[in-house]
Design a protein around this nucleic acid. Structure first.
Length: 210
DNA sequence: TGCCAGGCCCTCTTTAGGGCCTT
């Protein structure tokens, strides 16, 4: 199965449109249910983090001052991802920062994003909630380190995605759980999930996205 | 002057409102 790039950003806030910038990025490659490669770096975008962000993430202004420039890090990140499809937990958030940071250094950011929050809402409606930490505990995912650091959260999201791929195959009979299937699943309404999965299980040709 | 994300989803809905999820 083709690799999928699972990404997580730490940032100064929630909106690049309001001037927020990325402070750390991590990307893990998931292939065949296994993490096969990793990229992680703090980045110096010339901005400061407030005490709330430092308390949440453990990332300090001293750490950012010593970090490589943001444009250098983002070029490396883009090279690492290449043309692979991407996944993030609450992808609308990470996609905004991916596009904003890459546009600042003239890089293409047209990668398709699948979202583990949308997928979790469809596959695990019985979960207490769909926060990353809650889902990690709910599925007994491997411990990855401090939450709210980019690499730990990206690895947790990757393990969550691997769990989803496993469940789609084992419980729903989907043969090949590729990125195209994930994009299709997250687009259907909650009420249409069962019909969508039955159709995919019965039509393996469609699963390749062809 | 005051306010300031935004896409998704549910419901006491659809000419709307509010919660979730990310930092």
């Amino acid at each position: 199965m083709s690799p999928i790039a699972v990404i997580d950003f730490e940032t100064t806030g929630i909106s690049p449109g309001m001037g927020d910038r990325a402070t750390e990025v991590a990307i893990v490659m998931l292939e065949g249910g296994q993490v096969v490669d990793r990229y992680q770096s703090l980045m110096n975008a010339g901005v400061r983090v407030n005490s709330f962000i430092t308390q949440l993430t453990g990332i300090t202004n001293e750490m950012l001052q010593a970090a490589p420039p943001a444009d250098q890090v983002m070029r490396e990140a883009a090279r690492f991802v290449g043309g692979r499809p991407m996944v993030a937990h609450n992808a609308s958030f990470d996609k905004k920062f991916w596009q904003d940071e890459l546009s600042r250094c003239g890089q293409d950011a047209s990668h398709p994003f699948a979202c583990t929050v949308l997928l979790s809402r469809r596959l695990y409606p019985q979960a207490p909630n769909h926060q990353l930490g809650t889902l990690a505990a709910y599925h007994h995912l491997p411990s990855t380190g401090r939450a709210h650091r980019a690499l730990a959260d990206a690895e947790t999201a990757a393990y969550l995605l691997a769990q989803m791929q496993h469940d789609l195959q084992a419980r729903h009979g989907c043969g090949r759980v590729d990125h195209a299937l994930l994009m299709g699943l997250q687009r259907v309404s909650r009420h249409a999930v069962g019909a969508f999965l039955r159709q995919r299980a019965a039509s393996p040709v469609l699963e390749s996205g062809l």
